[in-house]
Design a protein around this nucleic acid. Structure first.
Length: 415
DNA sequence: AAGAAAGGCAACCGCCTGCCT
DNA sequence: TAGGCAGGCGGTTGCCTTTCT
């Protein structure tokens, strides 16, 4: 099963390696096939393990075996940025034999792979979570064969693979939220992230440490680098992000007055994970474009008609299977939506992505409403609530009070 | 053009909390 | 009630990329 996913990753990356604009349609078709097969596989692994062979899989594997003998680069494949490449000291070698032997990974230091995740690992993890849902992380390494500790799996999911994650530059809008909340809550990144569900706490933390902190320091030293709202000394409250006027900033805060986003994950949005994977694979593939470009171009042309046939077969199969079970049906509905996205994925890089996968988050709806004439509760409500939380935290004399009792903690911690 | 420095960010580490037995 | 365990969080590290000299 894992072989299939790994192979799918390779084939999709290969397709994406074709120069944009040369074989765009072909690339999209093959990419869609890969996506459907990925989804299909996630919902039908039991039958597969009984030895049934799916139409098209064999051909795909043959294709991969013939055309891709190269190793998947170790490193930050999502950005074409290798981290820890060439060994790096902490990078353990994954032995497929060891996986096959079934040695259960645990959190001891021996046999645990560290360092950047490979596309293969990501796909394995996503496929597993598609079937079982997030949680019970301890069982993930043993059940998937991943040579990672449970924490690493959870972190990878929450920080990178989780559906709806928005990457890229922070908008002045988001900056305003972070700055304001940081001034209210301190370095409670998880709490802050709960108001920016498209961003991870790690992302926010990094952005704060690398950008916003410096900006604030800069603004404090420069006399006209900040706007004094009241009082005599500058504070985080007074900072107005570049390109964000005070009115915009008010809107930033009003976003927070919307109902707290549900951090719970539903089966339907797991499908978005594969969207993430698809997007990431694209980036990864582009990074290795130079290596495989010419060769793959020929093969993509040759496989065009063949892939189209598989496309129809796979799509039909997904449709059939999805009618059998409720959850799977919802997933298939999502699959159709995402297929449309995939088919227009020349626009995937940049803002369009945010409008597709991330746009499904409830918070995005709230943001969209902002643009209209909708009136949000007054700013003071939020701030009052936040201060109440903070004061309650102090009363409890709990060192990590907010992280425990804060919004995200309430929604994520098990009961 | 080459080396150095700074920037950026994914991932790791250690601690903490809450649940379960 | 105490101990073990799983999961969550914030701080930090390490390495690649970009910019500067």
């Amino acid at each position: 099963m894992h072989e299939f996913f790994i192979s799918s990753a390779v084939i999709s990356s290969s397709v994406c390696s074709i120069p944009a604009g040369v074989l765009h349609r072909e690339r999209c078709l093959i990419f869609a096939i890969w996506w459907f097969l990925l989804f299909w596989e996630a919902n039908d692994s039991c039958e597969r393990e009984k030895g049934k062979e799916q139409i098209g899989e064999k051909e795909l594997l043959v294709y991969i075996r013939d055309s891709h003998a190269h190793e998947t680069p170790v490193g930050d494949w999502t950005k074409g940025k290798k981290k820890g490449g060439g060994g790096g000291g902490i990078e353990a070698v994954v032995s497929h034999q060891a996986v096959a032997m079934g040695r259960p990974p645990c959190c001891d230091k021996v046999g645990i792979k560290k360092g950047p995740w490979t596309p293969e690992e990501d796909i394995i993890l996503v496929s597993y979570i598609q079937q079982h849902g997030p949680g019970n992380w301890r069982s993930v390494p043993s059940n998937t064969g991943l040579m990672r500790c449970s924490k690493s799996c959870r972190l990878r999911w929450t920080n990178y693979l989780r559906p709806g994650i928005k990457r890229g530059n922070f908008t002045p809008h988001e900056e305003g939220i972070i700055i304001h909340l940081q001034s209210l809550l301190g370095n409670k990144w998880a709490a802050i992230a709960s108001y920016l569900p498209q961003r991870t706490d790690n992302d926010i933390k990094n952005y704060w440490n690398t950008h916003l902190k410096k900006k604030l320091e800069k603004s404090h030293t420069a006399t006209d680098g900040y706007k004094m709202s009241s009082g005599t000394s500058p504070s985080c409250h007074d900072y107005v992000p570049e390109g964000c006027d005070m009115e915009t900033r008010k809107q930033d805060i009003t976003v927070l007055t919307f109902p707290l986003p549900s951090m719970g994950l539903t089966p339907s949005i797991y499908a978005c994970s594969t969207g993430n994977i698809s997007r990431l694979l694209e980036g990864w593939a582009r990074s290795s474009q130079k290596n495989t470009q010419g060769k793959l171009q020929e093969r993509a042309i040759a496989d065009d008609s063949h892939s189209s046939n598989n496309d129809a077969t796979a799509a039909a199969s997904v449709g059939e299977k999805s009618r059998d079970a409720g959850d799977q049906g919802r997933g298939a509905a999502m699959a159709h939506q995402d297929l449309e996205t995939l088919l227009s994925f020349e626009n995937m890089s940049g803002g369009s992505w945010e409008k597709t996968a991330a746009g499904k988050a409830p918070f995005a709806d709230a943001e969209a409403k902002q643009g209209g004439e909708n009136h949000q509760p007054p700013l003071s409500l939020l701030e009052k609530w936040l201060f109440d939380e903070a004061s309650g935290q102090m009363r409890k004399q709990d060192k990590r009070g907010f992280s425990v009792h804060g919004p995200k903690a309430l929604s994520t911690r098990k009961n």
